[in-house]
Design a protein around this nucleic acid. Structure first.
Lengths: 338, 338
DNA sequence: CATCACCTGTATAACGTTATAGAGCCGCGC
DNA sequence: GCGCGGCTCTATAACGTTATACAGGTGATG
């Protein structure tokens, strides 16, 4: 349908190859010829057929970002950053929703369904080291968030243990002693849940506080509803917590809801901290104290690493990169809003 | 790199064309041959090179969903539905972020950047009838949300006027008399803002209430922050409203925040209603009454229409489809949570 | 003046697929 | 026995691009 190289070549009175060289500068072209060709391109409105180009080049120009849920604002915010970074590098980013499903993650890893993409950024939830090592697809892979260790792939995430430390230290500093954690997982999945629990335990120990297993609430997923249910259970304990640290902001927001329903005051009765710094947390009542990962760094770095691997560049630096984070004190731990 | 048709053909001892026919059933193939080929495919693990296939077929198998912001949960929820519907129909959905930018919308319409996609689902914000009519790209286009009328394209949206009516009727029914609207726009963009204001005015008139221009707050965008600021302004009026209807849930949630900060009780002092039924609204304090569009219908219908047009099928029914909605009564208008 | 290197531009072979034209083969009916 | 239709399967020409090999011309150098 569209205008193609041949049309341009005819119009400009040169060969196909010359037009191609003008378009992507693979070989030098004389100034006069270049101008004639460029004029023809402008007049006819040529844009290359990417299918054909990529068939020839062996690459498609697409990269995929696979996340467990698009409706988690953290991932939506991350995706927005990754999309624009990919565009800046000349790639188109395709979103894949794994829905935290093991089969979906495996399918992506093996690339069976995905002969279209040049590389994959995956936020793994259900797959671990073995599955990643068993990966057959040859295209580059960058892991974000959850840790899958000792695999030959880039991995970008915050230091989950340190992040937990910071959250718990803050709660201790404002005088809390019975600090609960919401969002532990039963199985081996969700490495970061384990790491965050570990940071929680270590920080408690460092503060001289006892570790009470009853105060660590497991959840199946990590949405608002899960946080709400877990908080209800915690409130039903004979001796409920005076602070809660959620696996992420959504869980913490669910906890806020359960506390409001039960008539508890936040932060007076129970203080709440989350992780992710989603925009929503700046508008809850009270506003949510949170650990803010640097989403811009994570999103951009993931895309850049992936593109560098795709293009075969030597990538400096270690495979695993830990990105910075900050503690944002807000209403849910007693800091008045600005 | 991968296994291709030729490898399979050699392995099975048949011709290229036969393998192709086995793969996509264009021509009948004898049972014995089919089995030999199928076995070779399974053994070697063949999957077609989509670039080549699409070069030949003239289609890429990609469709784009262009929305003003990925971080608006309404669009994230819609996107999740559209992605899975597209996958079910054998297409891959690419997300495009227009960031409510006119240039970005125009670029998508003209398809200059987008020779990769077979069709486009666009939620227009800054472009209107003329721009859509001037579209040069030949690929099918489906519009969602905002209305751009009298153009030869499918358009899927709720009846904005009726939705506003329902919201205002509800507020009137619970005894409110000074009802404000947050989210009018100055320019001609955002048709739906105009329509929602129109429904607001009509419903006021039908209830015998006066229309007070001071109670219609303009905003530049439609996020939580915009809603919060607008609500602050409304509260500063000599005679503040006793109810607020937001352009969408985000705006309404911002209003909730401003009300909480100013010490007003919801719904006792001010009742609040939004549109979109994003999950977040079920967890605010109080929970948010909202007009719930049927996102599943919108997302699926948009994708199906688009795919039908791409594949050249005759599409029955009118171009413009209005999708159903429901009023969900929650805490912000005095209905206790279930 | 011959040789050589260089600089532009051209012709063409891929890339992996699908659709078209046609080649064998078999059995049936005249 | 011959022609014919139907059924499988094959050979091959696209699709639009890029990279390779090559051709023609020009200027510099010995």
């Amino acid at each position: 349908m569209g205008v193609n190289l041949k049309d341009i070549a005819q119009r400009a009175g040169v060969s196909l190859a010359t037009v191609s060289n003008v378009v992507n500068g693979y070989r030098p072209v004389g100034e006069r010829t270049r101008q004639r060709v460029q004029q023809a391109i402008d007049e006819l409105g040529y844009s290359p057929n990417l299918g054909a180009r990529h068939l020839r080049r062996g690459r498609t120009g697409l990269i995929a970002l696979a996340i467990p849920e698009l409706t988690n604002p953290y991932f939506a915010e991350l995706a927005e950053i990754a999309i624009s970074e990919a565009a800046a590098l000349g790639y188109t980013l395709v979103m894949e929703n794994t829905a935290a499903d093991r089969e979906a993650e495996l399918a992506l890893l093996d690339g069976s369904r995905q002969r279209i993409i040049d590389g994959l950024i995956l936020s793994p939830v259900r797959v671990g080291r073995e599955e990643v090592l068993a990966r057959t697809a040859g295209s580059p892979l960058v892991l974000i968030g959850e840790g899958v260790y000792d695999v030959p792939h880039d991995h970008i995430a915050i230091d989950n243990v340190a992040a937990s430390h910071a959250a718990i230290r803050h709660l201790v500093a404002i005088g809390r002693r019975r600090i609960a954690f919401i969002g532990a997982t039963p199985g081996g999945d969700r490495q970061s849940a384990h790491l965050r629990v570990r940071g929680y335990r270590e920080a408690l120990a460092a503060a001289g506080l006892p570790y009470r297993p009853l105060l660590v609430a497991r959840t199946d997923a990590f949405g608002r509803l899960d946080g709400m249910r877990a908080m209800r259970d915690l409130l039903a304990l004979g001796d409920p917590p005076d602070a809660v640290f959620g696996y992420n902001d959504l869980v913490a927001i669910g906890a806020l809801r359960a506390l409001a329903e039960a008539g508890h005051r936040v932060p007076e009765d129970v203080a709440v901290v989350g992780i992710d710094d989603i925009e929503e947390g700046r508008f809850t009542a009270p506003t949510l104290t949170t650990i803010a990962p640097d989403k811009r760094v994570i999103g951009r770095l993931a895309v850049r690493r992936l593109v560098a691997r795709i293009e075969g560049a030597e990538v400096a630096g270690p495979l695993t990169v830990q990105t910075p984070f900050r503690l944002l004190r807000r209403g849910s731990t007693g800091t008045p809003d600005a």
